[in-house]
Design a protein around this nucleic acid. Structure first.
Lengths: 345, 345
DNA sequence: TTGTAAGCGTTATCAA
DNA sequence: TTGATAACGCTTACAA
């Protein structure tokens, strides 16, 4: 067994022909003698020749590597999206470098720069909640770096993106609570610099408005995106003199953190307090009572983000591609945590 | 703004010196005129020069990339380990290519081969349950490929590894159930070709034996590692004429799948059935009642796996390194799902 | 102290 | 149909 990796040069030497001929024979070029090709292919097979991707990268100025930057991967959402991304990109010969920013925008910037230094051919990014890196990302875009945002996007950034209609689904979620007879609905809101947070908040407000419910500032509790923030919010709710009877949370971890805390303090879900989350997590079906939540098509989201990136990779300057914003469908999964009257529809 | 990435050649041209001098000035070599160095560094700074990692890879025959192969990343366990791996390897300038095998050994082999073709400098691997790829991995080892296994290892493979003492903690978990007065404990066992499954099963058997409980074949239910398998196992349990009163599951997903199914069928946990899982997941503290489980030091596991790999990377032939098997400590977190009598200790 | 030249593995251009 | 050569960006003997 050859320990050393076989090179074209070695094949050429063995066959007493030049490296360029070997190269041509291996690539499907027309201008090679069939016999020569046969000999080359046979030896390549026998010696288990595999092209060196590094030299190809150097030559062709592309690494066939995509950088994926996500804020966290402790919840199932991003891993699921990544599986979608990989399924599409691997089929095209790309590999994926994943960096997680642990919800820190500094780490996020560092990750992006590292990937850039590594000469990735493109980026697929979901921003951290406190993203302040839009300026840097805009620079990348100005340099025509292929880039796709998903899920946590920034509207100050002009790149292709894959999202769901956060406004619409928040609206539906809150309307569902109203349907169920809940009267005083609080919103555990996400960080305001994320489009997703603002849209979900807007959906909440507009749904209340449509049904002539008052919009009260104290009923919009600023929250992060992690479970601990939900716990904190629950404590605030417990201390309110004018108690709400339902919660619409910006996402599942926050909803679950709040729900568990309320339960520990004697609040019965959904009898005393209805709860609706967002971004369907595995946990929604495990927590008791099962959590009503908006399910996003995670795999598809990854798949489409990857496809948008491939389009850019193949066709860099096309404005039509660069302005694409794909909005995927979603679904409100109604479960016990919000069912006071039984299912309505 | 230069859109094009600056090369050493361009710096050299601008400064009217040779590329080798520029290279030396940038690298901290002794044999450069301080003034030359200063000029080079200044221009490099000004022009935002960054070395091209591809050409370095080609030259130095290393990609500064590590392949990480895991069976899944839908549960929090592997993502947590990966964070540990990254924290260590990124500090040393390595990047990480993650592939998940979706519990398929074919995909696993494909992933390994892809990473190999990509010329990763080393591997960190946790095997799928049905791993049949030990032969191929042995080939890698024979070629002195730096390789570390963790968590799901194979004892037919002679590589450094990071594990916990599955036997010991299974033993403790089962003894805890016995302590609590449970008399008829079933084991939902993992795939037999995984060392981890066999060890946990052995711990179960030996704990029963120590306390003179009978070992009954029908009480060892072969299971996979995913939640659905726990659901199936629960149905088998519900149909048993001689009903057990406690479950020791090979991992949390299986435990939770079984638990939820039993509950739906009117079995009260822990009154009618005590449940203990393994490999502490986020879900353990969300499921109701909270699940007793063995907590593994995931971050540390990743960190140490990475360190073992770095040792190999730096010191390829050292036998002492190659035979290392690190066993980390763990902890049985006792929660309501197994508490019939109250906490014992 | 600096420059020249070779080389890492491959492909593309051009000439033979 | 094939081969010599240059090039991708960088490092490193070796020569100057």
């Amino acid at each position: 067994m050859t320990k050393h990796r076989v090179t074209i040069k070695e094949l050429a030497k063995e066959l007493k022909i030049s490296t360029s001929t070997v190269s041509r024979a291996l690539g499907d070029k027309w201008d090679v003698n069939p016999e020569t090709r046969k000999a080359v292919l046979e030896l390549a097979e026998k010696w288990n020749y595999r092209p060196n991707p590094i030299s190809l990268s150097l030559k062709q100025q592309q690494t066939m590597t995509i950088g994926v930057v996500i804020p966290e991967f402790m919840n199932t959402f991003f891993p699921e999206v990544i599986i979608g991304i990989q399924s599409t990109l691997e089929a095209e010969g790309y590999s994926i470098l994943i960096s997680q920013s642990n919800e820190s925008s500094e780490k996020e910037l560092k990750n992006i720069k590292t990937l850039e230094a590594r000469l990735v051919d493109g980026f697929i990014i979901s921003l951290t909640g406190v993203s302040v890196n839009t300026e840097y990302l805009q620079k990348l875009l100005d340099r025509n770096t292929p880039l796709v945002l998903f899920n946590r996007v920034s509207d100050s950034l002009d790149s292709p993106r894959v999202v769901i209609n956060d406004y619409k689904w928040a609206f539906e979620a809150v309307e569902h609570l109203i349907d169920q007879g809940f009267k005083k609905i609080v919103h555990l809101a996400g960080p305001d610099n994320l489009q997703l947070s603002r849209q979900r908040k807007k959906g909440y407000i507009d749904a209340l408005q449509k049904h002539n419910f008052p919009i009260e500032d104290k009923f919009i509790i600023p929250c992060g995106l992690v479970m601990e923030k939900g716990v904190l919010a629950a404590h605030r709710i417990l201390e309110m003199e004018d108690k709400p009877d339902a919660i619409f949370a910006v996402n599942d971890p926050v909803a679950i953190g709040a729900m568990k805390t309320l339960q520990k303090n004697g609040v019965s879900i959904p009898r005393d307090m209805g709860v609706v989350g967002f971004s369907e997590s595995q946990m929604a079906m495990i927590v008791e009572p099962n959590l009503t939540s908006v399910e996003q098509p995670t795999f598809e989201m990854g798949k489409i983000a990857a496809e948008l990136l491939l389009e850019q990779l193949k066709n860099k300057k096309d404005e039509a591609v660069l302005n694409k914003c794909i909005t995927l469908n979603a679904r409100l999964n109604i479960r016990e945590s919000s069912l006071r009257n039984g299912v309505t529809k």
